[in-house]
């Protein structure tokens, strides 16, 4: 069977973006860095919200767990920050597994409030300096810069390549996931949970899988965020943060990776472009959100429907 390889404009976009930084000043590169970070977070949340249809407004909790794991291991035990990357993902994923396991059966908006609750509990625990290791509201400072092959990443320009290469890896991984058997199961649960159950899909376990994968990825992003900021505090992981990630996914087009990247550009980029409006900038931003949603109710780039070439399936040779 031959599948026509379709040309994806996403790669052109990446090439253009990678050529940009030398032409930009550090401020705009830093804006792009934030866009990149939020795009990664968005893609990880997209798996939960867009693909599996679970209303998650507490993604910042997983992001926070990853960031704090990295910060604590780096500042207390002086482990190189990038070497903690897998571990931060693992901790966040494990946390998601333990917390979500008992409540995964909740439906729609009930799940939403529970994820908000988890996010708030994590934030309050961080503020109250749980186990004496999170530094309370001061947070943790003095997190090391990443070092790759003896080369220290410091300036916004250098971070750009770290973040955006990680974004490309993320896109590749999540694209593969999307088209895998697991990805199809996620979509099936989103479209009709009972039908999914009827097809023999273990709904609870797949929902949990979506949460764990999304959380793991958010945890790893937390690691990069921690090393980029060198200081992290609970304020950076508030409910508002989860709302931003959620908005990026829905505005861009739930279920679409390209859409999520555009969503990150708009949600993170627009307030910066509106900077000249001074104190009215958030007003315009709120209005823009409403208008964009009305103009493109399914998001800016809604996901393409899965299409199958029926003929090739019919003509497939099933003989052994």
């Amino acid at each position: 069977m031959k599948r026509p390889v379709s040309f994806n404009p996403l790669w052109v976009f990446f090439i253009v973006i990678f050529a940009l930084p030398p032409l930009l000043d550090p401020y705009w590169v830093d804006v792009l860095n934030n866009v990149g970070l939020y795009a990664i977070l968005g893609i990880s949340l997209n798996l939960i919200v867009g693909h599996t249809g679970l209303f998650n407004l507490g993604h910042a909790a997983f992001y926070a767990i990853g960031a704090y794991t990295s910060a604590i291991l780096n500042t207390k035990y002086h482990m190189p920050i990038l070497s903690i990357l897998p571990l931060s993902g693992f901790t966040a994923g494990l946390f998601a597994f333990m917390v979500m396991r008992p409540i995964i059966h909740l439906r729609g908006d009930y799940l939403c409030i529970v994820t908000i609750g988890v996010g708030e509990i994590v934030r309050i625990a961080l503020v109250n300096n749980i186990f004496g290791i999170t530094g309370g509201s001061n947070g943790i400072f003095g997190i090391a810069r990443p070092e790759l092959f003896g080369y220290v990443i410091r300036s916004p320009h250098q971070f750009f390549y770290l973040i955006w290469i990680f974004l490309i890896i993320t896109v590749v991984v999540f694209k593969r996931l999307e088209h895998s058997r697991v990805g199809r199961a996620f979509n099936c649960i989103r479209d009709d949970e009972i039908a999914a159950q009827g097809c023999g899909i273990n709904v609870a376990s797949y929902k949990l899988t979506a949460f764990v994968i999304g959380a793991t990825w958010a945890g790893m992003t937390g690691n990069i965020f921690a090393t980029k900021m060198t200081i992290i505090s609970p304020e950076s992981f508030s409910f508002w943060e989860s709302v931003i990630m959620f908005t990026i996914v829905i505005l861009g087009g739930a279920g679409s990776i390209e859409g999520t990247i555009i969503g990150a550009f708009l949600i993170i980029g627009l307030p910066e472009i509106f900077r000249d409006l001074s104190s009215a900038r958030m007003l315009v931003f709120g209005l823009a959100m409403v208008i964009m949603m009305i103009l493109r109710p399914r998001g800016l780039i809604p996901p393409k429907l899965r299409s199958y070439n029926v003929r090739s399936i019919l003509e497939r040779d099933y003989s052994v």
């Binding site: 550090p26 401020y27 830093d30 916004p156 900021m229 200081i231 900077r275």
Partner: peptide
Amino acid sequence: GDPRTAALAAQKLVT
């Protein structure tokens, strides 16, 4: 009043 916005604002002032 937010650390991350502050980091961006600082970059902007520097440039």
